[in-house]
Design a binder for these strands. Structure first.
Lengths: 107, 107
DNA sequence: CTGGATCCTAGACGATACTG
DNA sequence: CAGTATCGTCTAGGATCCAG
C-alpha cells in the first residue's frame, strides 16, 4: 500500500471528506432509496435536518459530483435531486462498511 | 434495505462514528502497515498528531474493540498497539472506499 | 416550494507544559 | 517512554427568521 506525505492526498481521507460529515450519509441513503426526490420530499425523509444544512450539503455534493440537481422553471418551483453515477458507485463500499458496522454493533 | 428511525441505529452511521473523526484513519492505517507498534513509533508515523489526541484516540478505540493494547511492566515503560481481528476486518471496506475515492480525485 | 441570512453554541482539535 | 492536565481556538452544525 502506498504512503502519502499529506493526509489530504490519501484517497481514503478524501473519500471521507465527501461522505464523513454528519448529514452526508442520510442524504445519500435517502436518495438511494428514493431515486429522484424533490427538496421537501428529501427533507421529510431525513429526520431532524434543517433547511440550512440540507441546502448547503446538497450544493456541496452537487459540486463534488455526487448529486444531480435538476431545476424546473415553474411556479411553484420544482427541484429534483438524485445520485449521479459516481454517487451510485459509492453504494457497494457503503454496504460493505455497513456490514462491518452491524457486526460491531452486535458485540 | 432497511430503514432506521434513528440515525444512530444505522450500522453505517455507527461505523462512521468509529472511523470518521479526524485521526482515526491515520491511526488505523499506521497500525495496518506497522502491525505492532509502540506508542512513540506510532506517533512518529502519524505526522502532526499530538500526545493528547493520540492517547485519547487509542483509549477510545481500545474500548470500541478496534485496537489491542499490550502493556509490559518494565522500566522504561513499553506499550504495544495493534489492530484487533475486528479492526483488521475493516480493511477491505476501507480499500473499497479508497478505490472509489481515488477515482473521484482524478476528475 | 425551495431555499438564504444571521446568529449562536458545543465539542473537536491544537499548543504547551508536566509526570510516574 | 508513555502518557495527563490545562487552556485556548475554531468550525460544523443548530435555531430562527426571511425571501423569490
Amino acid at each position: 500500500m502506498e504512503q502519502y506525505k499529506r493526509k489530504e492526498d490519501c484517497p481514503l481521507t478524501f473519500a471521507l471528506t465527501l461522505i464523513g460529515s454528519k448529514w452526508r450519509l442520510p442524504i445519500i441513503w435517502a436518495l438511494w432509496n428514493g431515486k429522484i426526490l424533490r427538496y421537501n420530499e428529501l427533507k421529510r425523509r431525513i429526520d431532524g435536518i434543517t433547511n440550512m444544512v440540507l441546502s448547503q450539503s446538497l450544493r456541496e455534493m452537487e459540486n463534488q459530483g455526487l448529486i444531480l440537481r435538476k431545476q424546473y422553471m415553474e411556479i411553484p418551483p420544482r427541484v429534483e435531486y438524485s445520485l449521479t453515477k459516481d454517487g451510485e458507485a459509492l453504494i457497494p463500499s457503503l454496504e460493505s462498511l455497513a456490514k462491518w458496522g452491524k457486526a460491531m454493533q452486535n458485540k
